[in-house]
Simulated scan of single mutants.
Amino acid sequence: MNRADEAGLHQEQALLNSLLADLDHCFEQVVLHYEQRLFAFALRLSGSYEEAQEITQDAFVRAYHALSGYSVEQVRSLALRAWLYQIVLNVARNRLRKLRHLPTCVSLEQAGTDADEELEGARAEGPEAHLEARERLLLLQQALLTLPLAYREVIVLRHIEGLSYPELARLLNQPIGTVKARVHRGLAQLRQVLAQHHAREVLYD
């Protein structure tokens, strides 16, 4: 485990201790700490700013009500980050099943801190590098939205949100081998979509 992971675990445990001390007052700290990341996750799943807002808000309401009914032992045993992702995922699945069509594009301004960091790094290299990075990220967002949700969710959780395979297996309640197979198949489909886009670009050049 690296230092960043250790720091994250310490921070997570501190939040859990705060919740045990005063749920009503300290739940706001949980919202402030995780809101942007959970919103970005919901946005990548749904492709819709409005849907992502609804999903995130609903998830926090459900999390609060769940915590209010948990015992001290249950709260202490929570893997808080993965638990919150699981709630967001469940809410998103329920809402997205009711939608006939998903949007095909996500605004980078709404896509989360990882997109911000990559664009900021490219901006330092000059306007051309910044434009190329922006186009690359937009293409990735659009390609993700073409995948079935079962593949989109595991790719985002594993390769964008950075969950480990053991975390993913617990979150999805599936064997690690099954999760790895889903990620592998999802990445294969994603590469195929990106390759098709590249082929179209070559034809139009």
Rank of each mutant, 00 (worst) to 15 (best):
R100A: 11
V88W: 02
Q57D: 15
E28K: 12
L32R: 10
L99Q: 13
H25K: 11
L80A: 07
E51W: 10
F41R: 03
V88H: 00
N94H: 08
R76Y: 03
D24L: 10
Q29M: 06
L80W: 02
S68Q: 08
F27L: 04
L84N: 02
T56R: 01
R97T: 13
H65F: 13
S71K: 01
R37P: 01
A42T: 09
W83D: 01
F27R: 04
Q57P: 11
S46R: 01
Q36W: 05
Y70M: 15
W83V: 01
K98R: 09
Q29T: 06
A63T: 06
H65K: 14
Q53V: 14
V88D: 02
A52C: 10
S48N: 13
R44Q: 08
W83H: 05
L43Q: 07
L102P: 00
D58A: 11
F41Y: 13
V106R: 11
I55M: 10
L43T: 05
L96K: 00
A52H: 04
R100K: 11
Y49F: 15
L89G: 10
C105V: 08
L38R: 00
H25Q: 14
H33P: 00
H65V: 12
S48T: 13
V75D: 09
V106C: 09
S48K: 13
L32G: 07
A66L: 09
R37G: 08
L43C: 09
L99M: 13
D22I: 08
L38C: 07
H25G: 08
D58S: 10
A42C: 12
S68L: 04
Q53I: 15
Q29A: 11
Y85E: 05
A66D: 10
Y85G: 05
L67G: 12
E28N: 11
L67D: 10
A59M: 00
S71G: 12
L38I: 01
T56Y: 06
E35R: 12
F39W: 07
D24I: 07
E51V: 13
R100G: 11
R76N: 10
N90P: 14
E54W: 08
E51N: 12
F41P: 04
R62L: 09
L67P: 08
R93H: 15
R93E: 15
N90C: 14
L23Q: 12
A82G: 09
Y85M: 02
V72I: 00
W83S: 04
T56E: 07
D24Y: 12
E50M: 14
A79E: 14
Q74V: 08
L96R: 00
L32H: 09
S68K: 07
R100P: 02
V72F: 02
N90R: 13
R44C: 01
Q86H: 10
Y49P: 03
F39H: 07
A59K: 00
A92M: 00
L89M: 11
G47I: 03
E35Q: 13
V75K: 10
A42E: 03
Y64P: 08
A59H: 02
L78M: 03
E54C: 01
C26W: 09
R97K: 14
K98E: 07
S46C: 02
E51P: 05
Q53D: 13
D24C: 10
A66M: 07
